[in-house]
Design a protein around this nucleic acid. Structure first.
Lengths: 115, 115
DNA sequence: CGGTATCCCGGGGGATACTG
DNA sequence: CAGTATCCCCCGGGATACCG
């Protein structure tokens, strides 16, 4: 279940690959962004979308992404509280890369099941 | 210099995103594959391409990728020994995703420097 | 050249319990 | 609902030294 994935550095700062992977290379980051690609989502919705991400990590990832300007966090003054996460313009610029990842993954999966 | 990146799990196994990120999500993995995208490379060439990857990690990454069938390792019976790494068919299927990552990164970098 | 072996370490992540 | 707060653990990565 738990697989080894990217942990730390990318290559030289200032190189395109790093610039992008710094934003979507974090653990679970692509999943979160993918969930958000179809529109704003609330915390609990994101958790349901990716049930294997613990609340702690989900929060941490969302905070990271917010700080990097990839998404926005909006607290609605309701009771009980409602929080909406939404991709920023920067976040939307990452979508082509994520779509590509999903596309490649889909093709590989299809090949697996058909063979 | 050293940034926080993906470490462990992706979401549900059997989902497209995971299928792809399992292969290119490892630390430094995209860099290595990117180096190999232009053709076969020897160990020392890969090290020169990505000077920030320690030999230990480079080896580990290459072994991982070999085992997952993303690249092939060929030892030439020369002296001193020569080893060539090359993308497999599976590895080449990942290239669109990696290109997308590089493209997005390039666009972001350009925007940074022009603003 | 193309790696291993070893030591060390930090922090990211899981689980669980609790809160405004 | 949308998180915090702890505790704990593990292993992935850097550095250095060495090998066939």
């Amino acid at each position: 279940m738990v697989l080894k994935l990217r942990k730390k550095a990318t290559a030289l700062p200032g190189c395109p690959m790093s610039k992008c992977m710094d934003l979507l290379g974090g653990c679970w980051t692509p999943e979160v962004l993918w969930s958000l690609s179809e529109g704003p989502r609330r915390f609990s919705e994101l958790r349901r979308d990716s049930p294997f991400i613990s609340a702690k990590v989900m929060t941490s990832r969302l905070r990271d992404l917010e700080q990097r300007g990839v998404l926005t966090r909006t607290v609605m003054p309701t009771s009980p509280p409602t929080v909406e996460y939404e991709l920023s313009e920067l976040g939307k610029e990452l979508l082509p890369a994520i779509r590509s990842i999903v596309e490649v993954g889909t093709r590989l999966l299809l090949r697996d099941t058909s063979s």
